[in-house]
Amino acid sequence: MLAYLIRRLFYALPILIGVNVITFALFFVVNTPDDMARMQLGVKHVTPEAIVKWKAERGYDRPLFWNDAAPGAGRLTQTIFFTKSVKMFALDFGRADDGRDIAREIGLRMGPSLAVAVPVFALGLFAAISFALLLVYFRATYLDFAGVVLCVAMMSISGLFYIIGGQWLVSKVWHLVPISGYAEGLTAAKFIILPVIVSVLAGIGSSARWYRTIFLEETTRDYVRTARAKGLSERLVLFRHVLRNALIPILTGAVVVIPTLFMGSLLIEAFFGIPGLGSYTIDAINAQDFAVVRAMVFIGSALYIVGLLLTDISYTLVDPRIRLQ
C-alpha cells in the first residue's frame, strides 16, 4: 500500500510539472511581459519607462529561461521560469499586485471557503442520495416520472438564476438572512445558510438523476433477486442491500472533489460576498492580477491530483477485492 502510494505520488509529479509548463507558456510565452504591462497600464498612452517599472515591480524583467548576466547558478535561478514557476513547488507564489503575499492570503481565505463548501458537499450528497432513493422506491410510478422531470427541469436552469432567485426571495422579500457578507465564528451561520441551500438546490437535479440510474442498475443484480426471493420486504432490500452497494460508486466518485473544496466556489462566493478563495480568484480575474490566477491554477491542479489519489485509496477501503500494487 505504502509503496503504491509513493509510486502514485511520483506519477503525480510529471502531471504537476506539465500543469506548470502549460501555465508558464500561457502567461509568458503567448504574450510577452511587455504586452501584459501595456494592457494593464492602458493600451494607448504608455511610456517605455512605465513598462520597465511595471516589470521590475513584479520581477518580470528577467529573461525567460537563461540569464547570461547573472553569475554561477544564478543563470538558471535569476529567470522568470525559475522565480515564477519552479518556486511554486515550494508553495512560494510571490506577491499579488496589491503587495500582499499570495501564500498568506490563501491561508487566510481557506477558512471561509471551507465553511461554505463543506456543508454544501455533505448536504448536497445527502440530499441527492435521499431524493434518488425516494425515486427508486417509487420506481415506474407517476411519482418517479414526475421526479425525473423535476430533475431535468432543475438541471436546465442556470446556476445564476438559483443564486439571484434565492437572494431575492429569502433576503429581499422575506428578510430572513442578510443578502451577502461574512463574519467570523458562530455568527457566520446566518451568512452561510443561504449560499449552502442555494448551491445544494442548484446541484441536486443532475446528481439525483445520476444516482437514480446507479440505484436502478443495482436493483437488477442477482443478489437483489435473491434477497427478494427469500421474502425480504422491498424497503429492506432497498435500504440494506441496494443502498450499501450503490454507495460504493457514489462515494468513491465524490471523493475526488474533497480536496478541491478548499478552492471554494467562484460564483457563490462572488454573489454572497464570502471572502474565500473563490472570490479571491474572481477579484484577481477582474483586476487582471496574473500572479494570483497563476497560483490558483497551480493549487487547483495539485488538489485535483490529490483527489485522484484519494479516489484510488477509497476504492481499496470500500471494496476489498481491489488491491493496489
Binding site: V43, V293, M296
Partner: peptide
C-alpha cells in the same frame, strides 16, 4: 499524459487564464 494534465487543471481557472491572455493579445493588436 497530455489529457490527464489538461484535465487536472480546474476548468474555470484554465479558461480564466486563457481568456485573460487572449484579451491581452486582442487589446495589444487592435
Amino acid at each position: 499524459y497530455v489529457y490527464t494534465t489538461l484535465n487536472s487543471i480546474p476548468g474555470v481557472l484554465l479558461i480564466a487564464a486563457a481568456v485573460l491572455m487572449m484579451q491581452v493579445m486582442i487589446d495589444t493588436h487592435p
